[in-house]
C-alpha cells in the first residue's frame, strides 16, 4: 500500500499541495523574521491575518476587484504594524502580551465584521491559477511549481528579496544591529525606534498578505477564525528557520510537505490512525526545534524594549 505513495500522480499531488499550503506560512513567517531580527517579537500575526483575510474577502465579495482588495490589505497590514510598533516600541509594552492583544483584537473584529456584514459564508472568485507558458508543461515540475495563483508565486519570489534586504543592504545591516545590540547601533547613529517601526510595518503588511492569500487565493471564502492559529505556527517557523529567510522557507515547506503527505496517506487508505497522521507535522516541528535548540541563536535584543540611557 505504501508503494502507492511512489505513484507519479501522488508525488505530484503531494508536492503541489506543499507549495500551496506553505504560501501563507511563508508570507507571515518572513514578515515575522523582519520584526524579530530587529528585536521585536510579534505574536499578533494571526490577528492581522484574520483582519486582512476578512477585509480582502469582503472587498472581492462586494466589488470583485482583486487589486483593490490587495491595496486595502497592504494598508491594513501597515496600520496594524504601526499599532504594534506604537505599543511595543514607543510605549515599551511587554511584547508577548501586546501581540496577544493584537491577535485577540483581530480575532474579535474579523468575526464581528463578518457576522454583521456578511453572515453566512459565501464563496467568491479570487485569484485564479496562472499556468506559466512552457514551464507549466514540464512533467511533474510544471504541475508542482508553475500552475498557481499570483499570491503563491509572490511568496516564493519574496524569499530571495527578503534575504537580499536583510543581508546585502544598509537597512538590513541596521535591522540586525538593532536586534543584536540596540545601544551600540544607537551610538552609531542608527535610529532604533525608526528601524523597529519599519520592520513591524513590513511584518504587518506581509502578515496581511498571508491572510489575503487564504481568503482570496487559496480558499476563496471567509469563515470565523479562518486562520485557525496559522499565524502562531508561522512564528514557530521563524525559530525553526533560525531567522534566515531560506531556512524559514525550508521549514515552511517541510511542515507543509508533511501535512500534504498525511492528507494523501489518509486518502489512499494507508492504515495509519487519523490522529497519528494529523499529528505528524507538529511532531516534526517540535522535533526539529528540539534538535536545533542550542545550535541557533536568537537576536540578542529579541523581546527587549530599548530606551536610550537605560
Amino acid at each position: 500500500m505504501l508503494s502507492q505513495l511512489l505513484d507519479i500522480t501522488v508525488i505530484t499531488g503531494i508536492l503541489a499541495s506543499m507549495i500551496r499550503l506553505a504560501t501563507p506560512y511563508i508570507y507571515a513567517a518572513i514578515g515575522e523574521t523582519f520584526g524579530q531580527k530587529s528585536g521585536v517579537l510579534n505574536l499578533g500575526v494571526d490577528g492581522v491575518m484574520l483582519i486582512s483575510a476578512f477585509t480582502s474577502y469582503y472587498i472581492v465579495l462586494q466589488t470583485g476587484n482583486l487589486f483593490l482588495a490587495m491595496l486595502v490589505t497592504i494598508i491594513i497590514g501597515a496600520i496594524m504594524g504601526l499599532l504594534m510598533a506604537l505599543i511595543s516600541v514607543t510605549l515599551h509594552a511587554e511584547q508577548g502580551i501586546s501581540g496577544i492583544g493584537i491577535f485577540l483584537f483581530g480575532l474579535g473584529l474579523s468575526d464581528l465584521l463578518f457576522q454583521k456584514l456578511v453572515g453566512t459564508a459565501k464563496p467568491i472568485t479570487g485569484f485564479q491559477d496562472i499556468a506559466i507558458p512552457v514551464l507549466s508543461k514540464i512533467p511533474i515540475l510544471g504541475e508542482v511549481l508553475f500552475k498557481h495563483s499570483l499570491l503563491v508565486y509572490g511568496a516564493y519570489i519574496l524569499i530571495p528579496i527578503a534575504w537580499f534586504v536583510l543581508n546585502k543592504t544598509t537597512f538590513g545591516l541596521n535591522i540586525r544591529a538593532v536586534g543584536e545590540n540596540p545601544a551600540a547601533a544607537d551610538s552609531l547613529g542608527v535610529n532604533v525606534a525608526l528601524v523597529r517601526y519599519k520592520t513591524l510595518i513590513i511584518g504587518g503588511i506581509l502578515s496581511a498578505i498571508a491572510g489575503a492569500s487564504l481568503s482570496i487565493a487559496l480558499l476563496n471564502v471567509f469563515q470565523q477564525n479562518l486562520t485557525n492559529g496559522l499565524g502562531f505556527i508561522a512564528v514557530a517557523l521563524v525559530y525553526f528557520g533560525a531567522w534566515r529567510p531560506f531556512y524559514v522557507l525550508l521549514g515552511s515547506l517541510i511542515f507543509s510537505f508533511v501535512n500534504a503527505l498525511q492528507v494523501w496517506i489518509q486518502v489512499l487508505g494507508i492504515p495509519i490512525p487519523s490522529d497519528i497522521a494529523v499529528m505528524m507535522p507538529y511532531v516534526l516541528t517540535l522535533l526539529v526545534l528540539v534538535i536545533s535548540a542550542g545550535k541557533t541563536r536568537a537576536p540578542t535584543a529579541l523581546t527587549k524594549p530599548y530606551e536610550r540611557n537605560e
Binding site: T9, G13, S17, R20, L21, P24, L214, L218, L219, V221, Q223, Q224, N225, L226, T227, N228, L230, N259, A260, V263, W264, Q266, V267, L268, G269, S274, D275, A277, V278, M279
Partner: peptide, 25 residues
C-alpha cells in the same frame, strides 16, 4: 470511498486541501 480526517473542526485551509486531494485522486 476515500476518507480523510483533518484533525480539526475549524481548519478551513486543510479541509480545502483535502478536498483538492480527493479530486486529484
Amino acid at each position: 470511498v476515500n476518507v480523510n480526517y483533518i484533525g480539526s473542526f475549524s481548519d478551513v485551509a486543510l479541509a480545502t486541501e483535502a478536498a483538492k486531494t480527493h479530486v486529484s485522486a
